[in-house]
Write a protein that binds this DNA or RNA. Structure first.
Lengths: 217, 217
DNA sequence: ACATGTGAACAACTTCACAGCG
DNA sequence: CGCTGTGAAGTTGTTCACATGT
């Protein structure tokens, strides 16, 4: 029943990721079946929420038993697009870019960093962690060559707009943006913004106001 | 009119951060007044959204003119809790921890990294970027000494639970968690989870399904 | 005329509650 | 009986539209 059932809330997709991680954890504990209740409990969601989310994509459960973990993992990986490999470019080899390149957690989910772009003449032509560093001018060519589908923007804010524009020109469809520059894009592109200062500010807000109800954080 | 007006949606708080950045940008362009429409346009929100968000905290605008930027910046900084300094601990000096310590963007908003905790014997007792590295066993003492209010969890997932527990024991109220471990806490604590793999998975989902409506990303 | 602030209308998301099935 | 899948109900969040004030 994996037909189109209307737009999926972004929140659902985010939770799907979380469920997948929970299932992998449960699997490593040699559990075979898991109920929506258990999945919810491990993450602080209601069981109905879990069932509704999963039901957007099919009937994966067995009544009276729960979800068969190996099969649901396979399904979720397929839904999230993880049955294929993803080639990623890092724009900007500052500290954050370096953290990305060094982080081992991506490969497990099929995300491979295949190219780094930076304007620093001393870095261009060298490799960082085995990944070649290029000048941003070469993005278009290399993106095509290496079939890059996602770009991670970790350049300084001052040059972020230009960097994002290059990514768009290179027809890279997915963008994970760590700068505080925000632009609206054509529908064919998918951009997610992660704002680290903003995260801290949100925390600061809720700490300074313990009286304030803190909903859905 | 900064009384309690019911729970503030987390989304509103997140947008407040964004507005603040927009205002600072506008200020650097020597603009004096800005309308809700302009603030919205720069970020892809409706003008009504901007007004509603701001109206949760007071009547800051002038009818017919818009918002006086210097004053609104001051108000937003106060609302977000940025009139005070925040002392931050980094738990885990891996790549991501190093990226945090090296990132200059925090100080501007009053966030100061004052201590690093790591179990690596070679790092303990040294300084990284001028910040001392301690053993996690010392967290409680140092948190009290240095008045640490927020901890950033950048340890490997395998030790994340223990690391978060130490933070809680040290009565550090704000937690920014970059691991994929999720736990529910007492109300007095504020935890935000940032899952980098999850962000990429969400992007992968929407790229693989261009037919799918992509709402609110 | 212009732009805010806000009740009312609308849309989206979550939870409830139960039918249905193993 | 237990647990899924799902319409219906309830809740939360967003947009509309206009009264109000400059």
């Amino acid at each position: 029943m994996a037909e189109y059932l209307g737009p999926t809330p972004i929140a659902t997709v985010t939770r799907l990721s979380i469920y997948l991680r929970t299932l992998e954890e449960a699997q490593s504990e040699n559990i075979e079946y898991i109920s929506s209740m258990k999945i919810g409990q491990r993450n602080g969601f209601t069981s109905a929420q879990v069932r509704k989310d999963l039901s957007c994509f099919g009937n994966f459960g067995q009544k009276g038993k729960g979800y068969y973990i190996p099969s649901l993992i396979k399904q979720l990986r397929s839904i999230l697009g993880l049955s294929q490999k993803w080639n990623i470019a890092i724009m900007g080899l500052g500290h954050l870019g370096q953290a990305f390149v060094g982080y081992k957690g991506f490969q497990k989910s099929g995300f491979n960093i295949v190219a780094i772009f930076d304007t620093d003449e001393n870095k261009i032509g060298t490799k960082y962690n085995g990944i070649p560093v290029h000048h941003p001018d070469d993005l278009k060519r290399i993106a095509k060559n290496k079939d890059i589908q996602i770009a991670v923007i970790t350049v300084p804010s001052s040059v972020a707009k230009a960097s994002i524009q290059r990514v768009i020109d290179a027809k890279i469809k997915g963008i994970l943006n760590f700068t505080d520059v925000r632009i609206s894009l054509d529908n064919e592109f998918v951009m997610k913004n992660v704002n680290l200062v903003g995260e801290l500010e949100t925390i600061a807000f809720y700490i300074t106001r313990p009286d304030w109800q803190c909903r859905g954080i």
